[in-house]
Design a protein around this nucleic acid. Structure first.
Lengths: 207, 207
DNA sequence: TCGCTTATGATACAGCTGTGCTAAAATGAA
DNA sequence: TTCATTTTAGCACAGCTGTATCATAAGCGA
């Protein structure tokens, strides 16, 4: 009989069990034994796939990033540029259970990365990747005339980045979290306000 | 010889030791023994001031809130309303070591509150208090004509709140944190942009 | 069939955890 | 001083932690 699942698929299952655990009980609750129990395997077996706990955690975090990345890549271009930008941003916001879980995991890791140099490197990678995305979005919108030509791209990218991470945080807050509707509305409003001056300033051509 | 310090002062010292520990090693690293060692007392002694660990943590978090609150209260009104608002917001942003420590503590607690119902209640209180402050600020600015009359106060308060928490997060990020200058600039820019339409729309009087 | 690799399960170890308990020390009033 | 209260220190308990080691079991090419 052939192997039911291969090595990588098993690692992914274990990572998903880790996600569920983080989502339910937080990152601190993640222990080798609990993850194994959650995944329905023995602790010794888990250890066969991940030599150390940090290796498991790093893998679990990396998979979150890849899942988001894949979702973004498979996003077909929207009607207008603004719609597309909104759709892109919504991929990293806790608008459904799947993305809420990702947000919780992400925030938990960032919190731990504040003091764990090992995870800090990984967290910084993801952080910078997201900033880079926002930077490109802003730049593209300026290029297409959706944003004023005098827009400070870095400033707006950092502002959008902070807003999005803040919304993610508030969207998964324990009590009375920000509703998906409100989150969407805030993002839309932010993009509108960004573009406001583009309409007000008629000089869209060369100076 | 009279008592060198009284009961409450001792509790405060222990809370500050807890802060230092959280700042240095994270919330997970907080154990009864470590806090006691950090404060230079025996674990048994610590237990005399705080019956349980959660009582210590709750006290430590509450004290952060009170310190911020006191800083805000002792803030003398700025030259313009915009300056005052900026100064208020800056009290909760990691612009120096003291406020960075507060931000780390706050974020650590929020992370833990995601899964700990005990702390969730306390975290929600602080969260709501900050939202309430922002709500009042926006409302005051609208009343003073610094913001357009048609401003959606709740929306803008939530947006500002998310932005501020996001900036706090990025300001204490492990590697290449957002610089205080950049944080200040982003807040100032946000407030300017908020006010932009107030100037553009001349109808400041009755409709 | 044999033999090798991979996978699994179980156990053990040292270390840390929160908390409870007990006895000593220090303090302050009588 | 004497006495009662507060404060401190230390120890013990049960439980959980990451990790290492080992023996068993399963899969699979020869």
């Amino acid at each position: 009989m052939p192997k039911v699942v291969d090595h990588d698929a098993r690692r992914q299952e274990l990572a998903e069990a880790t996600w569920r655990l983080i989502r339910r009980e937080g990152l601190e609750a993640v222990s080798v034994r609990k993850v194994a129990r959650e995944a329905g395997v023995s602790p010794g077996s888990l250890r066969h796939y991940f030599t150390s706990q940090s290796e498991l955690l790093a893998y679990a975090l990396r998979m979150v990033g890849e899942r988001i990345e894949q979702r973004i890549r498979s996003l077909e271009p929207g009607q207008t540029l603004e719609d597309h930008v909104q759709a892109l941003i919504e991929q990293v916001l806790p608008l459904d259970e799947e993305r809420a879980t990702e947000a919780v995991i992400w925030l938990a890791f960032v919190g731990k990365a504040l003091v764990d140099p090992e995870l800090a490197k990984l967290a910084t990678e993801t952080h910078n990747a997201l900033y880079h995305l926002f930077h490109q979005l802003i730049k593209a919108m300026v290029r297409h005339g959706a944003l004023p030509r005098e827009t400070d791209v870095e400033l707006e990218a950092r502002r959008l980045h902070a807003l999005v991470d803040g919304l993610a945080l508030h969207g998964v807050a324990s009590e009375e979290p920000l509703s998906p509707q409100m989150i969407r509305q805030i993002v839309a409003h932010h993009l509108e306000q960004l573009a406001a001056k583009a309409g007000a300033v008629p000089g869209r051509g060369e100076a």
